[in-house]
């Protein structure tokens, strides 16, 4: 039977043979996919994953067992990735004006994507392009929630925001995906402001 994250961490702290290796094996693919989608570069994603694990190794004694380990490691990955993107000055930002709030209110409250529209997302290239049009925070929420299965509370811990903010970001992300799927994104799109150096 697979060991839990908490058991693995405990074994690593007791210097049990092979435990850290097992942790690396367990989390390399999720962290790699997370950083790859945010940076768009294979080499950068590998470097960021490596840096994340180096930080995990150095700070494992500071891990609080009360917290989800998955959320903790993704917090480190998220901070490492945003530091990298800040240095490169490629973090896009979302600006919500009054008009954008009004536009949101006119849309249906149901933050889902219709099945016929969802079929378009099954094409990896389309999903990649659409995700890249979203602000980085929205991308993180979607990746952490749907790809990694984190709850909104856990995502809140990762991005250091209240769960309600995360739910709001999630809703806006879904709405924006839906809008972009039904209408190709362009510069006049009311919901999204693209900062300079968008990935």
């Amino acid at each position: 039977m697979d060991k839990t994250d908490a058991q693995l961490v405990n074994e690593i702290l007791l210097d049990t043979q092979g435990s850290f290796e097992e942790l690396v094996t367990r989390y390399t693919k999720p962290l790699y996919n997370f950083t790859l989608r945010l940076t768009g570069s294979v080499q950068t994603a590998e470097d960021l994953v490596q840096e994340t694990f180096i930080k995990v190794w150095k700070n494992l004694t500071r891990y609080d067992p009360q917290q989800s380990f998955r959320a903790w490691i993704f917090t480190i990955a998220r901070n490492t990735t945003t530091d990298y993107l800040r240095k490169k000055k490629t973090i896009p930002f979302s600006v919500l004006s009054k008009d954008e709030h009004l536009f949101e209110e006119t849309l249906s409250d149901d933050a889902t994507i219709p099945d016929e529209t969802l079929a378009q997302l099954e094409d990896t290239a389309s999903l990649e392009k659409l995700l890249a049009t979203l602000p980085i925070d929205y991308q993180m929420v979607l990746l952490l929630h749907y790809q990694e299965g984190l709850t909104f509370e856990e995502i809140g811990d990762v991005v250091d925001k209240p769960p309600n903010t995360v739910k709001s970001w999630h809703r806006r992300a879904i709405l924006e995906l839906r809008t972009n799927l039904t209408r190709p994104p362009d510069g006049d799109h009311p919901l999204h402001y693209r900062g300079e150096g968008h990935i």
């Binding site: 994507i113 969802l118 790809q147």
Partner: peptide, 13 residues
């Protein structure tokens, strides 16, 4: 459905 799409979206390192 979205979960499945995002999971299928993953690539192997």
């Amino acid at each position: 459905k979205l979960t499945k799409i995002f999971c299928d979206f993953q690539v192997e390192p």
